[in-house]
């Protein structure tokens, strides 16, 4: 109980720091569907960000090992085919690394609900706890921002590519988990620097 309180207290203090003083993990996953209970986690990619720098050396990309790999609709989206799964990682090994790297950092995803639910589901299965300091959703941020500016949100205007284009960020060859993780990280930085103003403000 005391441990929990202490963690909560530290977390509260931490969160109050300026957003540029945190470390972020921008992450993207590829799955065989949208339901974490029935569909599989196929790949996970992430990169570490210390604003304003994304260090590519910290970039990771894991194809997850499964007993039988059922790709369902996914190949259409991600371009992954069975032969890509020759060099795979045990989910447990990946999750342990992720748990380690997430500690005390902010997890950033584009449409974080999906990623987070898949990750939590997988972690629970292996009895691993993922404890990021906070979650940040670049999509939710953008939706809120557009709504606040009374924009009508058009269909397709909240995809990662569409959001990036609004900030003048370069076009990437989308739908590779690592490209998307980097792309999401850059979007987070752009949102932060554009709308959290100077480095003293808070982003969330």
């Amino acid at each position: 109980m005391f441990g929990y309180l202490k963690r909560w207290w530290l977390k509260t203090i931490q969160v109050r720091k300026s957003w540029t003083h945190h470390t972020y993990i921008a992450l993207d996953i590829e799955t065989s569907g949208l339901n974490p209970n029935t569909d599989q986690l196929l790949a996970v990619a992430w990169v570490e960000i210390k604003p304003p720098v994304i260090d590519y050396k910290t970039g990771r990309y894991y194809l997850i090992k499964h007993d039988q790999t059922d790709l369902k609709q996914s190949p259409v989206v991600h371009g992954l085919v069975s032969k890509d799964f020759l060099e795979t990682t045990e989910p447990r090994a990946m999750l342990e690394q992720l748990a380690e790297i997430l500690r005390g950092k902010v997890l950033v995803c584009h449409h974080i609900q999906l990623d987070w639910s898949f990750l939590k589901h997988a972690a629970r299965q292996h009895g691993i706890k993922l404890e990021p300091l906070a979650l940040f959703d670049t999509l939710a941020f953008e939706a809120k921002r557009l709504k606040r500016q009374q924009h009508h949100i058009e269909r397709g205007s909240l995809t990662l590519a569409a959001c990036r284009a609004r900030y003048g960020l370069p076009e990437y060859n989308a739908h590779h988990a690592f490209s998307d993780a980097v792309g999401c990280g850059e979007l987070m930085l752009a949102q932060g620097y554009k709308f959290a103003g100077s480095s003293k403000s808070r982003l969330w």
Partner: peptide
């Protein structure tokens, strides 16, 4: 490519 650090640069930083 792995050695690169990508920075988001604006007038403040």
């Amino acid at each position: 490519a792995q050695q690169i650090k990508a920075a988001y640069v604006n007038e403040h930083n």
